[in-house]
Write a protein that binds this DNA or RNA. Structure first.
Lengths: 139, 139
DNA sequence: TTTCGTTATTCCCTCAGATATATTACGCTT
DNA sequence: AAGCGTAATATATCTGAGGGAATAACGAAA
């Protein structure tokens, strides 16, 4: 499987500059993060954990663990599941889950702005390459 | 090796809340990050890569790779090394390296403030546990 | 020229995280 | 009651990052 470029699997080499990750921890470690939120959106889109996982080339086992982790840490579950029944069952994102999605993307957007600000500060103080080549950075 | 708790090796479980990591990428991937800056400080303190690595229980191989990565990406090296000679040689942090250290800690401090701000915003909008027990979070 | 402790380099091992595979449980629909 | 596709769960496998150990290169000092 050559050169997949979704999710955060492949070794991504960022552009030179300030980068970071941000997430929310709960009582039991990671609670809400980028991958989890994307997973929630995929579940909303596909109506099942299986299809959601497949759509982002994530192992079902991993997806299930993430959903379980979020549901155990949240007071109100983010995802409700049905086993058996027509189509074998399925999964739905709850209102609480939707709020978590919105909350995280808001946080992410703030973070993006923060990084941009720091990046500008960096550019002002130190000479960072603008032209293509891997050019000077003066420290 | 039971329960080491230095560096960032052991699985650290954070307190509930907003967390993150931040770093600076160069032309060849990660350039300056927390571990690298701590390593620089240890090199300054001990005068050798070997001792610096030992002091933070990092494999020499890994420490050397980090130093090499920084030196290759920086216009002026962050560390100058001497092989052989009295005492076998040693390593010294350059002025450029010192500037990088200062720069990163400044960035880190800004980031800490950002996280605190977001944490406060989170607390204002949603009820997050204050009393000890793993109590309610209302979403 | 011998000594010494460090840098530099190579090879193999370990371990955690994720993946892959397989099996069972489930319950609506027909 | 049989079929179906999913959830749920257990087990085995893969993989990549880092660690450990071993060795060579180095060069000033004695």
């Amino acid at each position: 499987m050559p050169n997949k470029d979704h999710g955060n699997k492949t070794k991504r080499v960022h552009e030179p500059g300030v980068h970071g990750r941000i997430w929310i921890d709960g009582p039991d470690g990671v609670f809400i993060g980028h991958g989890r939120v994307v997973l929630l959106e995929r579940i909303r889109e596909h109506g099942s954990i299986t299809q959601a996982a497949k759509s982002m080339e994530m192992a079902y086992r991993h997806a299930w663990d993430l959903v379980d982790s979020m549901n155990r840490q949240a007071v109100e579950p983010f995802v409700v599941v049905a086993t058996g029944g027509r189509g074998g069952g399925g999964a739905q994102v709850t209102e609480a889950g939707e709020k978590a999605i919105k909350l995280f993307w808001k946080l992410q957007e703030d973070f993006r702005k923060f990084l941009e600000k720091e990046q500008r500060a960096l550019l002002k103080k130190y000479l960072v390459p603008i032209d293509g080549k891997k050019k000077q950075k003066k420290w």
